[in-house]
Simulated assay, not measured.
Amino acid sequence: MSMPKPSAERFPRRASIDLTLAPHAAPPDEDVVEQSAGELGPTGRPLRYVPDPPLLAHHGPAKVLAMCNQKGGVGKTTSTINLGAALAEFGRRVLLVDFDPQGALSVGLGVQPHQLEQTIYNVIMERSVRVDDVLLRTCVDDMDLLPSNIDLSAAEVQLVAEVGREHTLVRTLRDVIERYDYVLVDCQPSLGLLTVNALAAADGVIIPLECEFFSLRGVALLIDTIEKVRERLNPKLEITGILATMYDPRTLHSREVMARVVEAFGDVVFDTVINRTVRFPETTVAGEPITRWAPRSAGANAYRALAREVIAR
């Protein structure tokens, strides 16, 4: 039995949601409780069987996934870094694209954005600059980074006058798409032109959703934006899944929000849930993904489980 693949038809067109420091030594690993298919997971559903990721005989062309939510602080950047690292552990070549002028993805991998002479801004705005001129290796084997900094904020204004402005990122990635298995684009917390570019370039969207009341409010607007991009710019775009983040099973509020999300979106919600933990802020300070910082922790295993689901879908 393989995991069903979410489709546009199965996804509601308009979701109806009821709304009444400095780096230091790595800490010791947490105890991890493994769950198997058939058991009830945090979503309240039986866990679906996910096959082991197959070995690859060759790499590419890449599947492009946009990490998108117009609300900030929901775990987009953390999920981009750690999902990318987990995919690399499974033998996939991964490119992370920092498409947020705040440069949080770059910082989370130990890069100082203000010290960069060239970023993805130069690639998309200057014909003489190629992706390879900007590409950085990360601390994770087979995972590369296209960094960003505040310069990218100017692109949103400058692209307005460009012909085919919504497909700028598509053209940027065209030269490297054959080298990778996955390209993960960390979007800024807005539904502006940069985010539309990411959606126009993507094969799928992963929506990190904090298990908190206000996070539910903007989901319907985001779904509408995704549908408009699918209809007008990118017919292949689909919603890969909704990822519940910052979940605290001890609180009634988190459990109620989780129940509402599963009720509204059904099978599109990943079985994997990312619990709230102090480990993730620590990894940002360390400039490493949690799979390297605390490889046996519950957080690391959660992102490995997510990577398995993403590959299966």
Rank of each mutant, 00 (worst) to 15 (best):
S2M: 07
P4M: 02
A8Y: 12
T20S: 15
A22W: 11
G38E: 13
G44A: 13
P46F: 08
L55I: 03
A57E: 08
A57Y: 01
H58P: 00
H59A: 01
P61G: 01
A62L: 01
K63H: 11
K76M: 15
K76V: 14
I81D: 05
N82Q: 04
G84A: 07
L87Y: 09
F90A: 12
R93I: 02
R93L: 04
V94G: 00
D100L: 10
Q112M: 11
P113L: 05
P113K: 06
P113E: 05
T119Y: 00
V129A: 00
D133T: 10
L136P: 05
D144A: 14
L146K: 10
P147A: 02
P147H: 03
N149H: 04
L159S: 13
V163R: 10
G164N: 07
G164R: 05
E166P: 07
H167A: 13
T172R: 03
Y180A: 05
L184E: 09
V185P: 05
C187I: 06
S190I: 02
L191T: 00
T195C: 09
A202I: 00
V205Y: 09
E210Q: 15
R217L: 12
A220R: 13
L222C: 08
L222T: 07
E227K: 13
V229Q: 05
L233A: 11
L237D: 02
I242N: 00
R255P: 04
A259G: 12
V262Q: 12
F265D: 04
F270E: 06
I274Q: 06
R276F: 10
P281G: 02
E288A: 04
G299T: 04
Y303H: 13
Y303G: 12
R304G: 14
A305Q: 14
R308F: 08
V310R: 07
